[in-house]
């Protein structure tokens, strides 16, 4: 009874701001109602979503964005964590520098990067001009815009993920690495066969965080490209916003929300399962 009383405040908040909206959006996704129509139940929203070419583009972009940001930023984060895991003055300074982007709000960083990527006058083109490269329309070219966005996201997130790997590495007992060394394992063998398996729980956690980030981090897209050119940098969350707020089509928005939250949940469970299979937990 006391336990329930103690839980009550957070439970109330969870119910009001998480569980109820989840139920509400699920119900809305199965409600067919467009301008001036009577509401009825059915799969019309999902059918329209499947037929919408824009949703197809947005899904492709989101997958590219996820793969393009998660793999490099996790690899870099792990590399930096390995290099900087031993305490020292230089390591402390470098760690701070790497975590710095995390302290800048994404929307503010995006406002700055608009000027870094400015064709001709921007910081990037200014330096590339020394190598004889002409002005490049980084954010206005359908072939480059998504990669520019991905680059910023990697820059922004790597330091944050490194913190988790540093914590994970600190949790690995030195004796295990020592034992491997005594057994004659080289640096790379020790990394692959001892350190990586022991980092399993960290990997599982960081991968899920990174996946959620690719879904919710769209601040820079809104500021820098508005999803353009021609939807080339548009992502699922911004698509949902466009349907709900610009087109007043909350049914389509709800269907897209249900699909992508469901998909993300599935992916998270699968990746945790896959990563935990080889995981060694300390008892």
């Amino acid at each position: 009874m006391t336990a329930w009383l103690l839980l009550a405040p957070s439970l109330l908040f969870l119910a009001a701001f998480t569980y109820w909206p989840v139920i509400g959006v699920t119900l809305r996704s199965f409600t067919q109602q467009r301008y001036g129509q009577q509401a009825s139940w059915g799969f019309d929203n999902f059918r329209r979503l499947a037929a919408d070419a824009h949703f197809g583009h947005v899904l492709t972009n989101s997958v590219l964005y996820a793969v393009g940001t998660i793999i490099p930023s996790l690899a870099l984060a792990l590399g930096f964590a390995m290099a900087l895991r031993r305490p020292g003055r230089l390591a402390t300074v470098l760690r701070t520098v790497l975590v710095m982007p995390q302290l800048i709000p994404l929307v503010a960083a995006a406002a700055l990067f608009v000027f870094v990527f400015l064709p001709g006058e921007g910081l990037l083109d200014h330096y590339l001009a020394y190598f004889g490269r002409h002005a490049t329309n980084w954010l206005g070219s359908p072939d480059l815009a998504l990669w520019a966005i991905i680059a910023i996201t990697i820059w922004k997130n790597t330091g944050y993920y490194m913190l988790f790997f540093l914590a994970g590495l600190a949790g690995i007992p030195d004796e295990l690495i020592e034992a491997a060394r005594v057994d004659g394992a080289h640096g790379w063998r020790r990394f692959v066969d001892v350190i990586l398996p022991l980092l399993g729980p960290t990997f599982g956690f960081v991968t899920v965080i990174a996946m959620v980030n690719t879904l919710i981090q769209i601040d820079h897209i809104i500021v820098m490209t508005g999803g353009g050119p021609s939807d080339r940098t548009n992502m699922i969350l911004y698509y949902i916003y466009q349907q709900a707020e610009q087109n007043q089509d909350t049914g389509l928005a709800a269907a897209a929300t249900v699909l992508c939250v469901g998909g993300l949940l599935l992916l998270s469970v699968l990746s945790l399962r896959a990563l935990e299979r080889g995981i060694h937990y300390e008892s």
Binding site: V114, P119, P229
Partner: peptide
């Protein structure tokens, strides 16, 4: 006219810098 999409910042700064 340059290829691709130029936003208001790109257009204004190109005009100011003589590009």
């Amino acid at each position: 006219m340059p290829e691709g999409v130029s936003d208001a910042n790109a257009v204004a700064s190109a005009f100011f810098s003589g590009r």
